[in-house]
């Protein structure tokens, strides 16, 4: 245990008492580093693996983003909240960035969390090594799996990578009988194609997928500090409107998506 808890990783935030990253009240640890480049990414500061300076939009002030921590430090920081997790069916969620990109740390953090009796969620884009994924499953209660786009070229265009690894990993999780929540960020006019909803509908029929969450895009990220390497980070898209939502609801219905909610 001592060795597990001393493993180090780089995180950029711990969101305490979140209600949106899995069941119950949870704390979400955001790991730095991501192999994807989603056009709508809210967290460009999540992409690079190392700590870096962010510049505020006004150009005047800089702040550090990212810190190296041990598993023990993360778990100690949330130790005062564990009885709230227990009372709400919540726990720890590991998110990012892409947690699988820091395989050793993610593995150790999940193992450490389980060692302290916490319910765990892994929030992943699915773009990661199979061995890493397979290695953590014993310590994961629920997988929050991001399903972002449908179609090989569309996927590459919108996220910077092809869908192959991701789809194979999703299939693998289902085969393993994991408890999966499929999370679909939906950006109006960008990835909300009919084809995409058809694919979502197909996945929703898999019994391992207990819930599909359509997450409408919000441009809340606008105005926040950005890494210096991406001074003009996208965020150009408009937030989803009520019309978008009803359009999506219609697509959900038409395609027979099961257990699917628009948040």
């Amino acid at each position: 245990m001592a060795t597990t808890e001393s493993v180090r990783g780089v995180i950029f935030d711990i969101q305490h008492a979140s209600f949106v990253d899995g069941p119950g009240m949870r704390s979400t640890v955001f790991l730095k580093g991501c192999p994807l480049r989603c056009r709508w990414c809210h967290n460009p500061e999540a992409i690079r693996p190392e700590p870096e300076l962010l510049r505020h939009r006004d150009g005047t002030t800089d702040e550090w983003c990212g810190r190296e921590v041990t598993v023990a430090e993360v778990l100690d920081e949330i130790a005062g909240e564990v009885d709230y997790y227990a009372a709400t069916g919540g726990g720890l969620t590991i998110s990012g960035g892409e947690p699988l990109a820091q395989g050793a740390f993610t593995t150790a953090l999940l193992r450490g969390a389980k060692g302290r009796g916490l319910h765990t969620c892994l929030d992943t884009s699915g773009q990661g090594a199979r061995e890493t994924l397979a290695g953590v499953l014993a310590d994961v209660d629920v997988v929050l799996f991001d399903y972002k786009a449908t179609g090989r070229s569309t996927h590459r265009e919108l996220t910077g990578v092809g869908p192959e690894v991701i789809l194979r990993n999703l299939e693998f999780l289902c085969e393993q009988g994991m408890d999966v929540i499929l999370r679909c960020p939906m950006v109006p006019g960008v990835n909300d194609s009919r084809e995409h909803f058809e694919a979502i509908a197909q996945w929703s029929r898999r019994s391992e997928i207990r819930l599909v969450e359509i997450l409408p895009y919000h441009h809340w990220g606008r105005g926040k500090a950005l890494p210096k390497w991406c001074p003009d980070w996208g965020l150009a898209q408009d937030s989803a409107t009520a019309e978008d939502r009803s359009h999506w609801q219609a697509l959900v219905n038409e395609n027979g998506c099961l257990r699917t909610v628009i948040r």
């Binding site: 209600f19 119950g24 709230y84 709400t88 069916g89 919540g90």
Partner: peptide, 21 residues
């Protein structure tokens, strides 16, 4: 408001823990 609708079971648990503490 969502705390009382979508997250009501969790809110109940949170408050129960506060009372217990």
């Amino acid at each position: 408001p969502e705390m009382f609708t979508r997250y009501r079971p969790a809110l109940n648990g949170v408050l129960a823990t506060y009372w217990k503490r």
